[in-house]
């Protein structure tokens, strides 16, 4: 990510423009495969097409949150050994969390709509949906913490600790919600009639996952660069302030 973007597209480089094009093509192809080519399911009918969006997005959301947690841990415990003071890890954590929240949102929207046709209601207190909504809100809080105006190092540390807290909480949330839904109301799990995934459906799902991953990577790279630009802007403003303090000093002396 150290290539020099040109001045016309501040966050783009040749590499990311290629990645962006690939992402666009991949999405179009994903639409074709998921909506037209792949067959309707025997049990779920057309509704099964929600699968190709729902499953890859939650996979990306989880992946992005894992990336956030690892970067945050590196930022907290390894930043002293880096010449940039760990800012790279901080930026990566922030951009991944934001992209993760977007895809967690996509998961919720598709999940609710899917639930409407298979369960008959938008919301079932299904273990997966409940975990996802809690995760979604947790990372909204994390992003709120990042948005607060503060010294970059202070803000980074605060956010990184919050990311670690959220990370250790993910398995706790997952298992408790899972227990909750399995310990009583056993029936609710079978309502979700997971389709047997075979043949064309399997390949479509696998391909969709790849396509969504490419899109998410493109987003994370660009968001990372925007964060770096924001930091550069703040640093330039700071340098100007120091310079003006010095000038003011000389003028008065």
């Amino acid at each position: 990510m150290t290539q020099v973007p040109d001045s016309r597209h501040m966050t783009a480089t040749t590499a990311t423009r290629v990645l962006g094009t690939v992402a666009l093509v991949a999405v179009v192809l994903m639409g074709l495969l998921g909506l037209v080519v792949s067959p309707a399911d025997v049990v779920q009918g057309q509704a099964v097409r929600m699968l190709y969006l729902h499953v890859p997005s939650i996979w990306i959301a989880y992946g992005a949150f894992v990336l956030t947690s690892f970067s945050s841990a590196l930022f907290l415990f390894r930043s002293r050994h880096r010449h940039d003071g760990g800012r790279h890890h901080d930026r990566l954590a922030g951009s991944a969390a934001e992209v993760g929240v977007v895809f967690a949102g996509v998961t919720l929207v598709t999940g609710m709509l899917w639930g409407r046709v298979t369960w008959g209601t938008y919301w079932q207190w299904d273990a997966r949906l409940t975990t996802t909504v809690l995760l979604f809100v947790t990372y909204l809080g994390y992003l709120a913490l990042r948005r607060l105006p503060a010294d970059p190092v202070i803000r980074g540390r605060r956010a990184a600790v919050m990311a670690l807290i959220s990370f250790v909480n993910v398995p706790i949330v997952h298992f408790s919600v899972d227990w909750w839904r399995t310990l009583h109301q056993k029936a609710s799990l079978s309502v979700g009639r997971r389709p047997e995934i075979t043949g064309e459906m399997y390949w479509t799902l696998l391909y969709s996952t790849l396509a969504v991953t490419i899109v998410a990577s493109w987003l994370i790279v660009h968001r990372y660069r925007v964060i770096r630009l924001e930091e550069l802007r703040d640093e330039e403003a700071l340098e100007a302030l120091i310079a003006s303090r010095l000038r003011e000093d000389e003028a008065q002396a």
């Binding site: 639409g31 998921g34 909506l35 057309q46 509704a47 097409r49 929600m50 969006l53 729902h54 997005s57 977007v102 895809f103 949102g105 996509v106 929207v109 598709t110 709509l113 899917w114 409407r116 046709v117 899109v215 987003l219």
Partner: peptide, 14 residues
């Protein structure tokens, strides 16, 4: 329509 709404909304969000 559900599938269309789901895909459409997701596309718009991203």
């Amino acid at each position: 329509t559900t599938v269309a709404t789901g895909w459409g909304l997701s596309f718009v969000v991203v």
